[in-house]
Amino acid sequence: MSRRIGEVMTAGPRALPLDATLYEAARIMRDQGIGDVLVTLAGRLCGVITDRDIVVRGVADNRDPAHTPLSDVCTAEPITLGPDDDTDTALRLMREEAVRRLPVVDDQNRPLGIVSIGDLVIADGAGANVLCDISRAPPSL
């Protein structure tokens, strides 16, 4: 049975402005035990930075984490959901885009939360097959 994203998302996602550094994002990820930070411009979502982005697009490319802005390595214009979307939509988008989490935004594109495959598995057990599909997908850069 499908549920509303607003019911299953993790509210209050961590976010940093577009000009914050990789170092700042990495510190938040470490301190909060999370794998991603939303990237904003004037309070509106404009990207997502993951721990993998920091390693693959930052460190492996010999970028200085203390001076490299998130704008240089984040995934711009991520696929998003609204709080009234349903879990079936989230699962479909995760499968199609081969992603494990999706930002949840309001109608002004301001971050409200984030929904992960784990959230969906806990909510209705439907995320397990999607995780298998995503795990088989080629890595994105």
Score class of each variant (00 low, 15 high):
G12Q: 14
A98T: 05
E7M: 13
V48E: 03
A26Y: 05
V55L: 14
L16N: 03
L45R: 05
A15T: 14
A42V: 00
Q108N: 08
D107R: 14
V56L: 12
L18V: 12
V130I: 15
L93T: 03
D84A: 11
R136Q: 15
D19Q: 13
A137V: 07
R100C: 06
R30N: 11
P13L: 08
I122N: 07
G33N: 13
V8A: 13
M9E: 01
T68E: 04
E7Q: 14
I134K: 07
D88I: 09
R52K: 09
A25E: 04
G58S: 11
S2C: 03
P17A: 07
N62A: 15
T10L: 11
L81R: 01
T40C: 10
A76N: 08
G127H: 06
I117T: 08
D133L: 13
L141F: 11
D51S: 09
G12K: 13
T89D: 07
R14P: 00
V8W: 02
Q108L: 09
S2H: 09
A60L: 14
A90P: 05
D19L: 12
R4T: 04
R92C: 08
N62R: 15
R3I: 08
P78K: 00
N109R: 14
T89A: 14
T21C: 04
V55C: 08
L131D: 05
A42Q: 10
G113S: 00
R4N: 00
S135K: 04
I34S: 10
S2L: 07
N129P: 02
T10C: 10
E7D: 15
L81I: 02
D36R: 12
D106T: 07
R27M: 12
M29V: 03
